[in-house]
């Protein structure tokens, strides 16, 4: 069984996000980019399924600018067998990405599509659910445990009510939450090997998808700063402040 994993290139989680001077976007000059951490977890899960003999091939897919090749090289170093880049400098909304993934899924016929539950830039948390809808496949979002058995996926998902367990037939879309696994680090030999693995490059039009955005971004702004706080030197002073200043006790 083939597993398709979608990986997004995002600003690294440790970078302090700054608005560009013109206010029209996020400062990316000199900024470190990484694979979206949730997608890295999804990829790790796919690689482990291959190592256990349950999957036969892991295909990593990314959408965006040419620089996404770095993200795909990283995915290949972590254990993906091959990669596809759908290259576009346009803003790709989750619906567009889901349509591109649906087209690739129809071409590649994987038994499972894995991706992170959200990307840490847009924080949308939509793509996997949209893909499952477009394909009319079962879905399990926010997965913290995944077991494949007899053509079915047993998934534990993290919800506000607790851990929900689902049983769904493959093919299906599963989106990874943080506790699904802890990804490995890429080793130098694997990084060297990854340079020889193939990356196919495609144009969105070749997949028959119109990438025109449906949303218009009118403004980007920093949230209002919290007023500066102060230190107190005892529990008594804290309780006094909470009663008389903040009036929350």
């Amino acid at each position: 069984m083939k597993i398709l994993v979608s990986v997004k290139r995002v600003i690294d989680a440790t970078v302090k996000i700054r608005l560009r001077a013109d206010g029209a976007g996020v400062e990316t000059a000199g900024v470190k980019f990484s694979i979206n951490p949730f997608d890295e977890i999804a990829l790790e899960e796919a690689v482990r399924l291959k190592e256990r003999g349950i999957a036969s091939e892991v295909l990593a897919v990314s959408m965006g600018a040419a620089a996404c090749q770095e993200t795909l090289r990283h995915a290949l170093a972590l254990g993906a067998d091959r990669a596809v880049l759908v290259e576009s400098d346009a803003i790709l909304e989750p619906l567009t990405v889901a349509k591109l993934l649906a087209a690739l899924t129809r071409r590649e016929s994987p038994g499972l599509v894995l991706m992170g539950k959200q990307a840490i830039d847009g924080d949308e948390n939509q793509c996997g659910q949209m893909l499952a809808g477009l394909l009319d496949w079962p879905q399990a979002s926010f997965a913290s445990k995944l077991e494949l058995k007899d053509g079915r996926a047993l998934v534990a998902r993290e919800t506000e009510q607790g851990i929900e367990r689902l049983d769904l037939p493959l093919p299906a879309v599963v989106t990874a939450d943080l506790r699904l696994n802890t990804p490995r680090f890429a080793t130098l030999p694997k990084i060297m090997q990854a340079r020889k693995k193939p990356i196919e490059r495609l144009d969105p039009a070749a997949l028959g998808v119109d990438p025109t955005p449906r949303l218009e971004v009118l403004k980007l702004e920093a949230p209002p700063a919290r007023r500066a706080g102060r230190m107190v030197d005892s529990v008594a002073a804290l309780v006094e402040a909470l009663r008389t200043e903040a009036r929350v006790l």
Partner: peptide, 18 residues
């Protein structure tokens, strides 16, 4: 978050999240 994006995709719409 589980339901709305799937429904929006079926209606060919891009939802606003959160």
């Amino acid at each position: 978050k589980d339901l709305l994006p799937r429904a929006a995709a079926l209606a060919d719409a891009q939802p606003v999240a959160d």
